[in-house]
């Protein structure tokens, strides 16, 4: 998925991308902090609908959308790509070297540069896990790092 980024002098920034259904979603971040979300139907030039949000509302919506409050089952892996940093939600399969060991034993940061910032499991929910936290198959880790680091993380620990 490619996000197109354009500066609109005097207004703010425009981000747009096309969904699988061919709709175009366009987010305007105004200089004032206001956000607008435009939804364009395929091959339509005028928006089907516009959502307007204040800065606070937009942040709250953003938090909901990236799954801060609730992670659905379909969510094995997820990605959030910013300019340089990326955050990914990754489910640990049984064959991964991560399963059954602590973060420290796998030397995660040393080997890949990526950092595990959260860990969710059927019974656990750990934010900012300490190095001696044990990871199990079936857990979901939230990893942050530069794109190359997160890529290295996925390759090294077989998380594809």
């Amino acid at each position: 998925m490619e996000v197109r980024e354009v500066e609109l002098p005097g207004i703010g920034m425009k981000f747009s991308f096309e969904t699988e259904e061919g709709e175009t979603i366009c987010v305007i971040i105004h200089k004032t902090g206001r956000r607008e979300i435009y939804r364009f139907l395929p091959a339509q030039e005028t928006p089907e609908s516009v959502i307007e949000l204040s800065d606070t509302e937009a942040r709250e919506l953003g938090a909901i959308l990236i799954g801060t409050h609730f992670q659905p089952d379909v969510q094995d892996t997820a990605r959030l790509v910013m300019k340089e940093l990326t955050i990914e939600w990754l489910k640990i399969p049984a064959h991964s070297p991560l399963a059954g060991k602590t973060i420290q034993e796998n030397r995660v940061r040393k080997l890949t540069g990526a950092t595990i910032i959260a860990l969710f499991g059927p019974t656990k929910k750990i934010l900012n896990p300490s190095p001696d936290t044990k990871l199990d198959a079936g857990d979901t880790v939230v990893v942050i790092g530069e794109q190359a680091q997160v890529q290295a993380f996925k390759e090294r620990f077989a998380l594809h």
């Binding site: 609109l8 002098p9 425009k14 747009s16 105004h30 435009y38 928006p47 516009v50």
Partner: peptide
């Protein structure tokens, strides 16, 4: 509410 329309990029630039 025309910030996202195609011509706006041209207009502001």
């Amino acid at each position: 509410r025309r910030s996202a329309l195609p011509e706006t990029e041209y207009a502001v630039s």
